[in-house]
Nucleic acid binder design. Structure first.
Lengths: 236, 236
DNA sequence: TCACTCATGGCACTCAGTGCACAACTGGCG
DNA sequence: CGCCAGTTGTGCACTGAGTGCCATGAGTGA
């Protein structure tokens, strides 16, 4: 409730909410593509031109709060100190997105059903998710600046975190928002942290020593182990 | 002239190529958004209606070969046997995409510059990449069906593979297609495999007997280290 | 020659999105 | 009170993507 107040210069016009409500009413009733912007503004009782004053496109009305959430995430990542563990930090950042979804379960579920069956909305959602992923990756790139392959690791870990988050989120959305979303996300993110949070190459690469330790799993293809050793030994 | 026979519904009329050529000529000359479909068909000397017969949207003309590549990838994944290692298989599948880019370096670089500065094209590219990622994830889901958290691992690994591939690909594209693209991609994919390499459950502590630890002195000859690992892994 | 198919193209239409100008309301300021 | 900004909502005309429908013309087989 109190979270819907205005902030940072963005006033809270009731018109915006009215447009979102009218849009979703029609989208759920007759489908997204069968609803024109004229239909929405007619139901909301406002002029057509006003719609595009609040939403740059018809798709934006489906994701009215992602812009704010993205700003929250970037602020959260900018606030962190250099002491906290990078992978854990981006996992916490991902939890911010989950919280936004969990704040309005019914709305989130409705939107999920909508985006699932409208290709155009799925494409739009991808661009939204991509911006989250870029925010995480940029943060990790800064933190990994000293590492060899820092940007690669940053991109991969950011993608893995987003994928894990989305996997758990969609699982929760598919269950109509029942149950606790955070536990599934915690589990998913723990998997990512177990894969990247541990001790692969970075510690060795950061402080070269006389001894190289390689941990390999039984069954892992030999050539891949060799590749890793080659990279660790400095590649020549 | 040559064997331009239709295969699986994907015909190759010269008109399609003419439209792509005309489109890119104009896109590079005056920009994507400053070029209308009418401009393209006028330059190609064909009717406007024919454009949309070959390309469902204006954006599709920028990615004329991804549909075929996606089909190749799904076929490649469907062909594999149950013996090959799943993560290695999806890495090889990703290399198919790289090969498509590397086949036409100049075209790929031009398209990269275009998509980098046109938001609409970036969004479209995301939807393309998403379909590749889904193909990989679906394959891994099948292979991981028996695992606990199989779908989670499948989604995360697919995302990591795609991110690693794209990181290396973009690095190559930024260098104007100079150098060998495959080495950068191999290196990036090796990183992903080192994090996820064929292991059922990530936590190492649960199955310590499956882990092999090798300690080597820096400067030790590589072949000697490999010999040691080979022996320890039991003829990998 | 006829019938049939198929690729092409012309035409009109819907609808998203934009630029521009105008009206209504607001809050000073003389 | 009249005058003057600034903001917000609206109406209108326009561009351009994408679609449905139908005409045309070339090729093919009988």
């Amino acid at each position: 409730m109190s979270s819907e107040k205005d902030e940072a210069g963005t006033g809270k016009p009731p018109m915006r909410d009215a447009l979102v409500a009218a849009a979703f009413h029609l989208f759920l009733e007759r489908g997204y593509e069968q609803t024109t912007v004229d239909d929405i503004v007619a139901l909301a009782g406002v002029g057509r031109r006003s719609f595009f004053r609040y939403f740059p496109s018809k798709e934006d009305v489906v994701f009215p709060d992602h812009e704010r959430c993205l700003a929250d995430m970037t602020a959260f990542l900018a606030d962190g100190s250099d002491d906290d563990e990078p992978v854990g930090r981006v996992c916490d950042a991902a939890r911010l997105v989950l919280r936004m979804y969990a704040e309005n379960p019914t709305f989130s579920v409705q939107r999920y059903r909508l985006t699932k069956q409208v290709p155009g909305l799925r494409a739009y959602e991808l661009s939204v998710v991509w911006r989250y992923e870029r925010a995480l990756a940029e943060y990790l790139r800064r933190r990994f600046a000293a590492r060899r392959d820092g940007t690669l690791q940053a991109d991969v870990i950011a993608a893995a975190v987003v994928a894990a988050h989305n996997n758990a989120l969609r699982c929760w959305l598919r269950s109509d928002g029942r149950g606790e979303a955070s536990t599934a996300v915690d589990h998913a993110l723990a998997y990512v942290q177990s894969a990247f949070g541990g001790v692969p190459v970075p510690p060795v690469a950061e402080q070269p020593e006389d001894v190289v330790v390689v941990v390999a799993r039984r069954g892992a293809p030999l050539w891949r182990v060799v590749q890793e050793i080659e990279a660790t030994l400095g590649r020549g």
